[in-house]
Amino acid sequence: MAAVWSVLSQLLHVALALAAAPLLTGVVRWLKARMMGRRGPHPLQPLRDILKLLRKRPVLAENASAVSLAAPYLAAGAAVAAIALVPSFARGMALAPLSDLILIAGLLALGRVAMALAGMDVGSPFGGLGASREMSFAALAEPALVMAVLTLAILAGTTNLDAIGGSFRDGGLGLRVSLGLALVALLAVAIAENARIPVDNPSTHLELTMVHEAMILESSGRHLALWEYAAQLRLLLWLGLLATVFLPLGQAPAGSAPHLWIVGLGAWAVKIGGLALGLAAFESAIAKMRVFRVPEFLGAALLLGLLGAVLLFVSTGLA
């Protein structure tokens, strides 16, 4: 029976994530608008945008190659595969043995490379500029992520996200400075990976500062819909990851029957909603930084992650 439940929960999780991703982006936008005193678009607007874009035929440059055609699908596929591995309402889903944090980072890198190559395909200056910046910033964001993973892996004994969530929930690890530092590093990486303020502005096309938008400037129609959808999935993935690691309360344990899922679903909705509120408040309160301040921001995150690991050595060495 447990095997059936794990498969069912996996399917439910993927369906839920696919449906919730556009809604989450819409909710964040709506919250930000409310905080700034505007009425804001309906939270379902991103979904409507995607449906509208899907009906349009994409326009490609004459010299665009097969990369432009294939990359949006690959990026969206990588995002779906990655989000299938991040637990939401229950642990012990069918794909739980696969849900390795380094693998998730690798899948995110796969989507990132697909996007960078699509940006370079036509040879327009903006695409190349965006690709160059994206890959450069990722060069600091990835080690910062690995440093946070190091802290988690030492505490949980594995890099498997499902197992980390489980041991953080049940393990009585206490409040630890290292976890706090890992959280700071992960938050910085999440902000950079999702192109949020202060690293990038998700809602402008201001040429000189943009990173993410510059790469998909040429896309239209279903390709643009896929890029947007992949970005929305990534946002949900990161919030889900933070919730699983740092707020594991309420998740249904592995192999539990569906009646416990309801609690997990409610807890998950509350956690993601809270994180969305925090994100909106943070983005409303802060200004975008200069592009060449971003390396300092990510470098600081990297060093704080390293510091967290070092302090952890002290406490594990002593205890």
Binding site: G174, L175, R176, V177, G180, L181, V184, L304
Partner: peptide, 13 residues
């Protein structure tokens, strides 16, 4: 222990 540890770490942060 946890709180002292956390506050000390926060001062360092």
């Amino acid at each position: 222990y946890d709180l002292s540890h956390l506050l000390g770490g926060a001062v360092l942060l």
